[in-house]
Design a protein around this nucleic acid. Structure first.
Length: 277
DNA sequence: CAATCAACCTGGGTGC
DNA sequence: TGCACCCAGGTTGATT
């Protein structure tokens, strides 16, 4: 679930709470979530480090450590990072626990084990960054950037928007929401989108992401903030998960289909334009 | 290059 | 209650 707004919500919460904290112990309860380096090395290189920065790139939460390494957290489908005060009770599905110098615990909880923790050198962070597409909320991501992105692609627009190598941060939910707002069918060929539609899509992408952040993320099932609280954006969804219900804009029944294997929701009334496929 | 599918996992919901 | 089955917000790699 965690897409850009869910990770950014976490980042904003953790930044003031983690900066200056020192990691005194790391308990790997399930080595499967430690991507690189292997667990023993991961632990050895993390213990004793101070958290100096809390940033985000695409769907990765990045904790900059005093050693110069970066602890990158990818939440996968169901991963949560809970920051618990000293003496807190157990949480379910804790895979890795970081004990801080004041007794707090940063717990990576992930029922499905799709999430990953990576300890990366500066060089590795740079390589990761280069492999990811532009940040849709960055100032230098313009309508022209989006136009260029869409122009060269004969495939369908939804998979393109979700491809992290081309555009960073959009997942299944926010892609469907943005396409609805822009009035573009998810199966439209990317290069068939008109200049006017690109403009609408550009604004729609930023709007749904910003609204997701304001609402502290979408909790359909798993997403929790660092305090264990759900987000509220699920109440603002216009099409995602609303198949069979009337469109809030035109009343047409929302439909569900499958695009590239992903459940895809759209309004046949507002997102008709399939003529140019 | 584009599309499809399987795989990686667990848990929740549904229907019998 | 039990169980088989389907579904799930992500990513990667193999195949067609």
């Amino acid at each position: 679930m965690p897409e850009l707004p869910e990770v950014e919500t976490l980042r904003r919460e953790l930044e003031p709470k983690l900066i200056g904290a020192c990691i005194t112990d790391v308990v790997v309860k399930d080595p499967r979530v430690v991507g690189t380096p292997p667990a023993p090395l991961f632990v050895a290189r993390t213990i004793g480090q101070e958290v100096q920065r809390v940033t985000r790139r695409a769907k990765y939460l990045l904790l900059g450590l005093s050693s110069g390494d970066t602890l990158a957290v990818h939440r996968g489908m169901a991963g949560n990072l809970l920051l618990r005060p000293p003496g807190s009770g157990e949480d379910r599905h804790v895979r890795v626990c970081f004990v801080l110098d004041d007794g707090r615990e940063l717990r990576f909880c992930d029922s499905r084990v799709f999430g990953r923790l990576l300890l990366l050198s500066r060089h590795e962070v740079q390589r990761l960054d280069e492999h990811l597409g532009p940040e849709p909320l960055a100032e230098d991501f313009t309508e022209a950037s989006l136009h260029t992105l869409l122009a060269g692609h004969r495939g369908r627009i939804k998979p393109l928007l979700m491809d992290q190598h081309r555009l960073a941060g959009l997942g299944n939910i926010y892609t469907d929401e943005a396409l609805f707002l822009a009035g573009i069918h998810p199966e439209r060929k990317a290069d068939s989108v008109t200049a006017e539609e690109v403009g609408r899509l550009y604004r729609a992408i930023r709007e749904v992401l910003l609204q997701g952040i304001v609402n502290r993320g979408t909790t359909l099932r798993d997403h929790l903030d660092s305090g264990g609280q759900p987000g509220a954006n699920q109440r603002a969804l216009m099409v995602f998960g609303r198949d069979g219900q009337p469109c809030t804009r035109c009343g047409t029944t929302i439909e569900k289909t499958r695009v590239n294997g992903r459940g895809t929701y759209y309004c046949p009334g507002c997102q008709a334009g399939l003529t140019i496929r």
